[in-house]
Write a protein that binds this DNA or RNA. Structure first.
Length: 436
RNA sequence: GCGAGCGUAGUUCAAUGGUAGAACAAUAGCCUUCCAAGCUAUAUAUGUGGGUUCGAUUCCCAUCGCUCGCUCCA
């Protein structure tokens, strides 16, 4: 179950309404995906779990939601203009290609095989568009290639409006865009993607410890939401693979069918960003330490995760197959906090109006407290299997006996075990199970 | 962007220079006292454009798209 696990998950995602190919009726568009009814619930639950853990359950991190379009100077200060633009030259002989800036003395000669290279073609990893309806070069703006800069440029606003004491952080969930050279592996690498990032400002002294603390904190977040520890690892970057701004970086990697790949990077960005923005904006990007009566440039620890990558990892990790008699039962063992639907209410017999009525009534009551659905479009066995594939942790079944004893059957997803619960106690029973 | 491969129902597969089939999935109904049961009915496909031809899903060309590989890193 490794080679075709990806295919099985992609197939389930389409069949059950988690993820669809974007623009599919037109043949699809490379590297773009749409989240369907269950997918958006799963993704929202992941973002909510992150927000709760990183913002709401802390008193030192503030949430923000900054604009995708930013002043072009931002990308000069960040280094993206230098690093994301180049000329690309192809070798027609050995089929490799090169950035012109990386080539040595002779820009026309392939460093691998010595053959002649093609003319340089403009090569740009940032999406470009125009602000305003008139397309003039003066109006060019970029879609942000990372959400981080939106937080750096608001550093002074946060100091002025919230007066936080170091260490403190900003958190943001939002879309970013990169013209990736090699998109692929389903939703793993796409050109439009969603990030969940923290910029944590801390004292320069002890920033190493703070960085280590965040690596642990973020690693445990995935484990607490049910990721199999064997599929998760940390990988510290070697000095030569560090980005230009980073002093240290650790990736949290998940074991996908295509290998261990990055879900989140935790970087120590030092004071690089604040100093860059000070240089380009002319504004002093410092924090005033009241006890020492001095201005300092805080260092920044950046835990930066991919929402779509996390969603894919949780899906892959939850996918299970079990033999039941001669059949294969497919289920998503999603953590209860992430499951798109918490409980499905099902009538055992849909041609008995009283049973249907009670089931619908129960579902309406449960909906007030958590995501619940009613379904009667198939036999009970098939309904259970559909909910298994959606990752629904509990099914509630109303049968003939319910009319007499006012009890229903609660069936648990992973064990398929069933218990009788009084209708009056049902919500309390499920809430207990869902929140413990 | 470059190279290779591939385009037939939702999915997996057939077939044919002359009305495009099946299985599973889906929908509706009947039936059914708990794990993809049964019966009946229904809907759904040759990516797009052009050429050859009396006739093209099939042959040819182009295009669009997908998959895989390549330096990216959420």
């Amino acid at each position: 179950m490794t080679d075709n696990l990806m295919d099985k998950v992609i197939s389930l995602c389409k069949r059950r309404g988690f993820i669809f190919q974007s623009s599919e009726i037109y043949g699809g568009l490379s590297s773009t995906w749409d989240y369907g009814p269950y997918g958006v619930e799963l993704k929202n639950n992941i973002k909510a779990a992150w927000w709760r853990s990183c913002v709401q359950e802390r008193d030192d991190i503030f949430g923000v939601d900054t604009a995708i379009l930013m002043h072009p100077k931002v990308w000069e200060a960040s280094g993206h203009i230098q690093n994301f633009f180049d000329l690309k030259r192809d070798c027609s002989s050995c089929k490799q290609w090169f950035k012109e800036a990386d080539l040595g003395g002779d820009k026309n000669k392939c460093p691998e095989c010595g053959a002649k290279l093609t003319e340089g073609k403009p090569f740009n990893l940032m999406f470009k568009t125009h602000q305003g309806p008139v397309e003039e070069s003066a109006n060019i703006v970029y879609l942000r290639p990372e959400t981080a800069q939106g937080m750096f440029v608001n550093f002074l606003n946060i100091l002025d409006s919230r007066h936080p004491k170091l260490p403190f952080g900003l958190a943001q969930i939002g879309k970013a865009f990169r013209n990736e050279i090699t998109p692929g592996n389903f939703t793993f690498r796409t050109r439009e993607f969603e990030q969940m990032e923290i910029e944590y400002f801390t004292y320069p002294q002890g920033s190493d410890e703070m960085y280590e603390k965040w690596v642990e904190e973020r690693f445990n977040w995935y484990l607490n939401l049910g990721i199999n520890p064997q599929n998760l690892r940390k990988r510290q970057h070697q000095k030569d693979e560090l980005a230009h701004y980073a002093l240290a970086c650790t990736d949290i990697e998940y074991q996908f069918p295509f290998g261990f790949s990055e879900l989140e990077g935790i970087a120590n960005r030092t004071d690089f960003d604040l100093k860059q923005h000070e240089k380009f904006s002319g504004k002093e990007m410092t924090y005033f330490d009241d006890t020492k009566k001095e201005k300092i440039y805080p260092h920044i620890i950046e835990p930066s995760g991919g929402v779509d990558r996390a969603t894919l990892a949780f899906l892959m990790d939850a996918y299970s197959e079990e033999k039941v008699k001669e059949e294969t039962r497919v289920l998503l063992k999603l953590h209860k906090n992430l499951a798109p639907v918490k409980a499905a209410v099902l009538p055992l017999l849909k041609n008995r109006p009283q049973i249907v009525e009670i089931a619908k009534k129960i579902s309406w009551d449960l909906k007030k407290s958590f995501a619940a659905v009613y379904d009667d479009t198939a036999s009970i066995g098939k309904l259970y299997r559909r909910q298994d594939e959606a990752g629904t942790p509990f099914c509630v079944t109303v049968d003939v006996q319910s009319l007499e004893d006012l009890q229903v059957t609660v069936r648990e997803r992973d064990t398929m075990e069933q218990v009788r619960v009084e209708i009056d106690n049902l919500k309390r029973y499920l809430l207990e199970k869902l929140t413990n």
